[in-house]
Design a protein around this nucleic acid. Structure first.
Length: 872
DNA sequence: GTCCTCACG
DNA sequence: ACGTACGTGAGGACG
């Protein structure tokens, strides 16, 4: 197996941590900040990098071979503060507890040990990560070696790959030493050429490649610069030599000896206790407790006696994986305060008593994922009613930013660790299987027990945050509605898709040949890397934008190049059609079940804003904007002969929400007058009457309105409208001058988020924004935009969710056959028998428009047709 | 598994 | 100076 080797610069990291953190002391008066910072960084690195081999290298003694070259090396440096010196023994103890090798070598610095080991690793073809606080180490970067340099603090890391160095300095890693040779390094007292700083050094290297190159072409310099260089030639060479890391140090340790197999937990606890690392110890306890679970006795039921089915019970349906429309059902567990039962699936299916109890709404069921249970049970004709608690939804409402993959991860948030993760029970990948009954039954039993135990904690949190109504009146009933929608599924015309697929394949083949001949070569058009080489190197087109790994070939970049080469439009078309074929024809065909339908799963506890998402297949991103793609919608048809599809969407729901929340008079009035909002915005911003608003003005206003909803920034708007940042900023100013209420709202919401640490929606959904007070500009700015966007997007999500519950109730009340099939953020899709159509076309807008009462009216557009495509 | 690209609201 | 518009999911390439 390939190795992943981490080489840490112990001294440098300890220094960084020491100066980055305030002086902490344990109860013995020993300072611990450097060790603490080092530990935090180590924990993170171990988690993120999962190394197979590790070493921490230290400097040895006071002098090294470098002092022989230059006696003032590292001179003038302040003595290591005693508060730091005293921490080194603890640091070494800590590293030993992690069972990580450490190494030092007389006469050499940590750099040289790392340089030597990384060279050895490269020769063996292993992946290497070097971690240090010293930028000198970046000279070690190579295709297989990345150098992580801490910046500000110790857990914030900048990753220097060969590409990153090229981008940042325009240098290759081995030119770093030439840079130091010319500019020197104050911290190590490397002199360099006096008067040459980073700028000059980079300029010289760009022209001449190396220190040697500079002096070989010294004739090209003139004036003061030439004098300086000539006078200090020796210093330049010495400096370069000093900065050069020795990569053949006489070390006596081999990479094989560095294998890392995890810490000695007992030792680690000891060291942490000694240092009084309380928060780390607490975190550790969670993981430790998992092995010591509370004893549980339960009964495996072979025939259901109705007397075990109580008025209130925790109920859990165990599913083999998350694809509950198709996966195996593995059994059911029930729990009350005193009893726990496990019921095998065949017993459940054949029990009339269970069926009757399960669909009795007066029998309260406490569950973990009631939507999955609703849909999965419907597969065997078992109806579920009376869901009174849903652990996943409750936890999601308390904090939507966490990920809810399985029950163990949810309840850990509430300090409960008696349930194993599904991965622990079933394994993963090729090794995944159902374990023997003893293990399976205990796992299932624990889940019902867990629900019972954790329910009060979740309920308490919901009450405390005043989110009980959001949970009980919105998400919980919605889960049942969604479960039914998913189970119903949407009929897809397989032949229609196949025919479109054939056509597309032919077109794509033709375009492919055209592209190859225009490029003068064959290559993989789907590979951005290969495409980048063809466009920007072989054809010589200008690369307008870069990604982390190379040239960007995204559509917006290519569009700017369209006039410059005939190949561009072919590539854009190839991309567009290729997407249709792979994702929407082939992808969708794979998802059609035996009943001829697709059964998406709506994720109800995933997004941070409160929206739903849709998977396997995603039915919330079926093409609509371009006609070629829109034709995909012809394949979505009613599941009953003669029925029709109906689509109803909210008009401008997010801007209406903004109008309501900001109470901006002009915005509110615009919606009250039912005016075209983008035209109105253009008219206000450009100070012209509505009749004189041009297409371009309206387009710009529309982009500004989008920007407002996203949490406006001049940069974002300038990108979108392809204008300069200044122009974008001017637009925004004019917008705010026209809609002062919106400006006040944006300022207020950010201030509130800073004060409270979270923002809320119309129905009191919460999103925490810890980064809003960050000193990091990017993190803070992102949090600020999120603070502006989440209440808008989230409130719109609240509204349509309420409308779905009301719509479900209305169809039931009116005893209609019409079925709600899909939700796409601001629209609902139905299939309906023709005789209900007239009624439906009135009922749906009425229900949706009255889902909530805002200070502006809600407006719904509705259409019907033979297929989804025709609902326009 | 991660990155890039692109489909939707 | 920093370097992004908000929220998603899926497919292909590549290591």
């Amino acid at each position: 197996m390939a190795k992943k080797i981490l080489l840490l610069d112990g001294n440098s990291l300890a220094y960084r941590a020491f100066f980055a953190l305030p002086l902490l002391t344990n109860e013995n008066g020993i300072h611990t900040n450097a060790v603490y910072g080092f530990t935090m960084m180590l924990q993170r690195i171990l988690e993120e990098e999962k190394p197979t081999h590790m070493i921490v290298a230290f400097d040895a003694g006071k002098t090294t071979f470098r002092h022989k070259t230059f006696s003032e090396y590292k001179g003038g440096r302040q003595k290591t503060p005693p508060e730091l010196s005293e921490q080194f023994p603890y640091l070494k103890k800590l590293i030993d507890a992690y069972r990580i090798k450490r190494y030092e070598l007389e006469n050499y610095e940590a750099d040289d040990i790392i340089g030597t080991l990384s060279l050895e690793a490269e020769r063996e073809g292993d992946e290497v990560v070097v971690i240090s606080g010293d930028k000198d180490l970046t000279q070690l970067a190579s295709p297989s070696t990345t150098v992580y340099i801490t910046r500000k603090g110790i857990t914030d890391i900048e990753k220097y790959t060969v590409e990153h160095i090229k981008e940042k300095y325009g240098l290759t890693p081995d030119q770093i030493i030439d840079m130091k040779g010319l500019m020197g390094d104050a911290s190590d007292n490397i002199p360099g050429v006096p008067g040459v700083g980073e700028k000059t050094a980079l300029k010289l290297l760009a022209a001449h490649g190396s220190v040697e190159g500079v002096y070989a072409a010294i004739g090209q310099q003139k004036g003061k610069m030439k004098e300086k260089l000539v006078a200090n030639e020796d210093l330049a060479y010495i400096s370069k030599q000093l900065a050069t890391i020795e990569r053949n140090a006489p070390i006596e340790i081999k990479i094989e000896e560095l294998s890392y197999d995890g810490p000695d937990q007992d030792e680690l606890v000891k060291v942490w206790n000694e240092l009084a690392f309380k928060s780390l110890l607490e975190k550790m306890e969670y993981t430790a407790e998992e092995t010591v679970k509370e004893e549980l006795t339960f009964e495996v039921v072979t025939s259901i006696d109705p007397s075990i089915l109580k008025d209130e019970m925790a109920v859990h349906l165990e599913l083999y994986d998350e694809h509950y429309h198709s996966c195996d059902l593995l059994g059911v567990s029930l729990a009350t305060e005193t009893e726990t039962y496990v019921i095998p699936m065949d017993v459940v299916e054949h029990s009339e008593a269970f069926r009757a109890w399960f669909k009795d709404p007066s029998k309260k069921k406490f569950m973990a994922d009631s939507k999955a249970a609703t849909a999965a049970f419907l597969r065997c004709g078992i109806e579920l009613k009376g869901v009174d608690f849903d652990l996943m939804l409750g936890a999601y409402i308390v904090n939507p930013s966490l990920t809810y993959t399985d029950m163990a991860s949810i309840v850990q948030e509430y300090g409960y660790t008696d349930v194993s993760t599904n991965e622990q029970i079933y394994g993963k990948g090729a090794k995944k299987k159902v374990p023997e009954d003893v293990i399976l039954h205990e796992h299932i039993a624990r889940k019902a027990r867990t629900i019972w135990k954790v329910r009060p904690l979740v309920m308490e949190k919901l009450e405390e945050n005043e989110q009980f109504d959001l949970y009980d009146k919105l998400e919980l009933p919605l889960a049942t509605v969604l479960g039914q929608m998913e189970s119903l599924g949407v009929m897809v015309d397989r032949n229609q898709l196949s025919e479109m697929g054939k056509e597309l394949s032919h077109k794509l083949e033709k375009i492919e040949t055209d592209i190859y001949s225009l490029a003068g070569q064959e290559f993989n058009i789907n590979s951005p890397k290969q495409l980048g080489v063809v466009l920007f190197e072989n054809l010589g087109l200008p690369p307008l934008k870069k990604t982390k790994t190379g040239y960007s070939t995204a559509a917006d970049v290519l569009e700017k190049l369209e006039g410059q080469h005939e190949i561009i439009s072919h590539i854009l078309l190839y991309r567009q059609l290729g997407k249709l074929l792979s994702t929407y024809i082939e992808g969708l065909l794979k998802e059609i079940h035996k009943d001829g339908k697709v059964h998406t799963r709506f994720q109800q506890a995933l997004t941070t804003t409160g929206r739903l998402s849709s998977t396997n297949p995603n039915l919330q991103n079926i093409p609509v904007r371009l006609e070629e793609g829109r034709k995909i919608r012809k394949a979505f048809v009613p599941s009953e002969p003669g029925w029709v599809m109906v689509a109803a969407d909210y008009s401008q729901i997010e801007l209406r929400v903004l109008a309501d929340m900001s109470e901006d008079e002009r915005l509110v009035q615009a919606f009250k007058d039912d005016r075209d909002i983008h035209t109105t915005t253009a008219s206000d911003v450009f100070h012209v009457p509505a009749e004189e608003v041009t297409g371009d003005m309206r387009r710009a206003a529309k982009a500004v309105n989008f920007g407002i909803v996203y949490g406006i920034s001049d940069y974002g708007l300038s990108q979108n409208l392809n204008i300069t940042r200044k122009e974008a900023a001017a637009f925004i100013d004019r917008y705010f001058a026209s809609f002062p209420g919106v400006k006040t709202y944006m300022t207020t919401i950010v201030a509130d988020a800073k004060r409270d640490g979270f923002v809320t929606t119309l129905m009191n959904r919460r999103r925490y924004l810890p980064d809003i007070t960050s000193s990091n500009f990017n993190l803070r700015s992102f949090a600020e935009r999120t603070a502006m966007n989440t209440p808008i997007q989230g409130s719109a999500a609240d509204i349509i969710k309420k409308a779905m519950i009301d719509m479900d109730a209305a169809l039931e009340r009116e005893d209609m056959q019409t079925r709600m099939l899909l939700q796409v953020h601001d629209e609902l899709i139905f299939e309906a028998p023709p005789d209900e159509l007239d009624k439906l076309m009135k009922l749906v807008p009425e229900v949706m428009e009255n889902a909530v009462k805002l200070s502006v009216p809600l407006k719904v557009d509705i259409a019907h047709g033979d297929t989804w495509y025709d609902t326009k």
